[in-house]
């Protein structure tokens, strides 16, 4: 559905990604990592300085008009709706622009407005809507022509929890019908809930593209295990643990899940003692970003230090 081959533009540097049809891909990375630039390149709003892009088999910057019939977009910094017009007036205009069949339009408008919660706002001018209300309408507007590809930049910014859940449900349903979605978000829980694949960008470089599990293993492999034991404390010196602290009968272990598994640790512990309580914490997706930022700061600090010397 989308192919990036060694694409460079602004901060993006030689990014190569292939997004197959029907996937929901979360673009993550710290602010300024190049996420919005990626989306703008994918829809042709920007032209790559280097490399090649194919979106739905077309070159987006050159064949934008052919491309946009099957494309739904929502950018944080680009107004979508006519402020002076009513909500339903905006949708009627979209119906004409995309030449949507009246019955199908009525059915989809009813469904989207009901599920995203803007059914009571239909006759209100867009300028009178709050940020969250406008966002719901904008999401509906991006979906009304049933695009095959959806590019969303921070789609849930300003949405309340109900609207977020409705949005997730809609995207999941449309995915089953073949919709491909690429979205950016700083809400890692959202990415976890919604995305089948994750692309991690760091300062314009494409660090990783794959499943959530794999990304966590690669960038934050450190799991932690809290154990409360009955009887003597186990001897775990043979295990490649990163950190090991003891507080009375409680143990706190940090370990690299690429080197040792939780099962191996537990097996060794139960051979020596009885486990009363056990808690394992796997890293969250947010830890990836935090870790990348920390590494970044550390690198910058060491560079500063070297420069001063």
């Amino acid at each position: 559905m989308i192919i990036f081959e060694n694409v460079s533009k602004f901060i993006l540097n030689s990014v190569s990604i292939h997004v197959p049809q029907g996937e929901t891909v979360g673009l993550i990375g710290a602010s300024g990592a190049g996420k919005t630039t990626f989306l703008k390149l994918a829809c042709g709003l920007l032209k790559p300085s280097n490399g090649r892009i194919y979106t739905m088999g077309l070159k987006p910057a050159l064949e934008q008009k052919e491309l946009c019939r099957g494309l739904g977009v929502l950018f944080a910094d680009i107004p979508v709706l006519q402020k002076e017009d009513t909500v339903v007036g905006n949708f009627e205009l979209l119906r004409s622009i995309y030449q949507i069949n009246k019955d199908r339009f009525d059915q989809d408008y009813h469904e989207l407005s009901d599920r995203l919660g803007f059914v009571l706002l239909s006759d209100r001018p867009v300028r009178d809507l709050s940020l969250g209300q406008r966002r719901r309408v904008e999401i509906g507007a991006a979906l009304i022509h049933r695009p095959g590809l959806l590019l969303l930049d921070e789609p849930t910014a300003g949405l309340d929890e109900n609207a977020k859940q409705a949005f997730y449900e809609l995207i999941r349903e449309r995915r089953r019908e073949g919709l491909t979605t690429i979205l950016t978000s700083h809400d890692m829980e959202e990415i976890s809930k919604l995305c089948s694949r994750i692309a991690l960008l760091d300062q314009g470089k494409h660090l990783y593209y794959g499943t959530e599990e794999q990304i966590k293993k690669r960038f934050t492999p450190m799991d932690t295990m809290q154990l409360e034991v009955e009887g003597r404390l186990p001897d775990l010196e043979d295990l490649p643990l990163v950190r090991y602290t003891v507080d009375e009968n409680r143990l706190s272990l940090s370990y690299d899940s690429n080197c040792v598994t939780a099962a191996e640790i537990v097996k060794l512990v139960v051979q020596q003692t009885v486990i009363k309580k056990m808690k394992i914490r796997k890293p969250e997706l947010a830890d990836v970003i935090v870790r990348l930022k920390t590494n970044d700061k550390a690198e910058n600090l060491s560079v500063d230090h070297e420069e001063r010397e």
Partner: peptide, 13 residues
Amino acid sequence: WDGSIANEFLRPV
């Protein structure tokens, strides 16, 4: 000036 021209370029008209 408000950036919505980009959105116009993404319409099939």
